[in-house]
Design a protein around this nucleic acid. Structure first.
Length: 307
DNA sequence: GGTCGTCAAGGGGTG
DNA sequence: CACCCCTTGACGACC
């Protein structure tokens, strides 16, 4: 079995950022020059994203989370952004991704909440999902969009029901690409599994969140059921706690002992899995993990572990 | 010229 | 009920 490792969005080793920002306040202050500035930032994000992809390929990293901020103010109600204008840039990015078989995901910003009790929040969430759908369509690539269940207004049971109800409002193509992750405070692996089974979408396990929000569950009782929600290669998020006091925050690096123990749990399934490494030091944490695994005698080529 | 506050967003959590 | 936290980098006010 092959375990492909990846990291999220922005490497620390090269000085590139594919998510330069533009706040609406600043956009407005620029007046007629606002759209020029916005265009400038988007083009610079494209340039950086290409550099980051090149860097990933050179380092044999084939699991990648693309920034959710490639287009600042993408769906802002007072900004009209014409995605078609960037069609050739998006195609170029998509070609690099396809030619190198990079598995791409995108994590919804935490301020988009599909199960919110506020209609405006639900519709802005649907708007951004539609935007990403179009963005990926122009890239012509396969992808997954990761989100959490959301708020718990009215209790968890109602929160889960709202997620399912609002999920059915989505376009077929968006539903097909949405995957659901357990969170570190509210919706645990049992909750997320039940939703995923009901609406038939993949469950992306976050092992760190599971450790923060265990609810007395044992991961061994769930791994097979979690994998069953995937008809492609399952994706798992892995990170280590910053400290005993700050359990929920991400550590700079990955705790090798925790990781090796987790690999032991995966081994028995004998199937290919992607693991997204979510450490503060991003690609550097990934490389350090690979070095440590090799030192322990694991067979690793590039960033792929052979078990 | 360096430091710090501001912007933007939703919701859980604290006191 | 009023804040604080999470996240991000550009910008500008201030000293």
């Amino acid at each position: 079995m092959k375990i492909k490792l990846g990291y999220a969005c922005l490497p620390v080793s090269i000085n590139e950022t594919s998510s330069s920002m533009l706040t609406y306040t600043y956009f407005k202050r620029l007046g007629s020059n606002g759209y020029n500035k916005l265009n400038e930032i988007i083009l610079s994000n494209f340039k950086s994203l290409k550099e980051i992809l090149k860097y990933n390929i050179a380092n044999e990293i084939y699991v990648f989370r693309i920034t959710s901020n490639l287009f600042p103010l993408a769906t802002h109600p007072h900004v009209s952004l014409d995605l078609k204008k960037y069609q050739s840039n998006l195609e170029e990015i998509g070609n690099i991704i396809n030619q190198n078989h990079i598995r791409v995901s995108l994590h919804l910003d935490p301020y988009y909440v599909l199960n919110s009790i506020r209609d405006d929040v639900v519709s802005s969430t649907i708007n951004i999902l539609t935007f990403y759908q179009n963005m990926f369509k122009y890239m012509n690539i396969d992808y997954k969009i990761v989100t959490h269940v959301g708020g718990k207004a009215g209790g968890k049971k109602l929160g889960m029901k709202r997620f399912i109800d609002h999920f059915y409002l989505l376009d077929y193509d968006i539903k097909k690409h949405l995957i659901l992750e357990n969170d570190d405070k509210v919706y645990n692996i049992r909750n997320v599994l039940s939703i995923c089974k009901k609406i038939n979408i993949p469950f992306v396990l976050d092992y760190h969140h599971f450790m923060c929000n265990k609810n007395n569950e044992k991961i061994d009782d769930y791994l097979d059921k979690i994998f069953d929600t995937w008809d492609t290669i399952p994706k798992i998020h892995f990170s280590s706690p910053k400290s005993k006091k700050e359990k929920r925050a991400h550590h700079d690096y990955i705790d090798i002992n925790m990781f090796v123990k987790f690999l032991d749990k995966l081994k028995i399934f004998n199937k290919d899995i992607d693991i997204m490494i979510e450490a503060k030091f991003k690609d550097e944490a990934l490389f350090r993990l690979v070095r440590q695994l090799k030192y322990l005698g694991y067979k690793v080529e590039g960033t792929i572990i052979f078990l």
